[in-house]
Simulated assay, not measured.
Amino acid sequence: MSAATYPFAENTYTLYSYAGCPFAQRTLRALEVAKVPHEVVEIDLANKPSWYHLVNPQLKVPALRTPSGDILIESLVTSEYVAEEFPDSQLLPSSSVERAQLRLFVEIFSSQIIPNIYGTLRAATAEEQEKKKQALLQGIREVSRELERQWERSSGKGGPLWYGDRFSLAEVDTVSFVNQLVGPEHYRGFKVPDTDEFKAFHRWFNEASKRPEYKKFSQDSQTIINNVQKFVA
């Protein structure tokens, strides 16, 4: 392979991914739910191939090459592209208001939970760890409240998933990171309380974790614990 080329599948989608990356799992799940034919090129993030900068100059996963040769990067961008390109998947609703409500849920999750999962692990002192754990718990509290609001809307159908009984972009963009909570639990003793204020969160994830769309790309707890060890202060 010359320095000017990189591997891709002809006339179909090519996803550059890493099985242990929760960000890449967003796109994997989107393609799976939408039933989009695709090929996966696994990228070893610890030893990236010399050609990968031609795919993604940021050297991150995921990256999605379309059949026309366009390359899209960033997990929220690629998952939403799949949802929009394949509307029959119903990953996104047709209503602009409902799309905005779903995007708000993903934004709350992405800004208040994801950074604090890794912040909890990176915190070096007991004081900083406790601060990050409380911030993480507050993020989960906000997500639980947002789920309750959604289930009161007609589109929520009373739960247990964002749109009642179907896996949508709300789950595609978030469930990989709920799985990552085993890291803070193992290394920092973090637990989501089994109380009423977190009841919706537990109900939602308990249902999502039973679905094949979740199971196909999820990893066992020990693998996640090993993978996140590099973040632990």
Rank of each mutant, 00 (worst) to 15 (best):
M1H: 10
P7K: 08
Y16C: 00
Y16G: 02
P22K: 04
P22C: 06
R26F: 00
L28W: 06
P37C: 09
E39D: 12
V40Q: 10
E42C: 01
E42F: 07
I43C: 04
I43N: 09
A46V: 10
A63N: 04
P67D: 04
S68R: 11
S68Q: 15
G69F: 06
I71K: 04
E74D: 13
T78A: 04
V82W: 01
S89Y: 11
S89W: 02
S89G: 12
L92P: 00
E98W: 01
A100N: 03
A100T: 08
F105I: 04
I108N: 02
I108Y: 02
S110N: 14
Q112R: 09
G119N: 08
R122N: 03
E128N: 11
Q129R: 13
K131C: 02
R141N: 15
S144N: 04
E146N: 01
G156T: 02
K157G: 12
L161K: 02
L161T: 00
Y163C: 13
Y163H: 11
S168D: 04
E171D: 03
D173C: 14
V178F: 10
V178M: 05
N179Q: 13
V182Y: 05
G183C: 08
P184K: 06
P184R: 02
E185C: 15
H186L: 11
H186Q: 04
D194N: 12
D196H: 14
A200K: 01
A200I: 00
H202Y: 03
E207S: 06
R211Q: 14
P212A: 07
P212I: 07
S218G: 09
N226D: 15
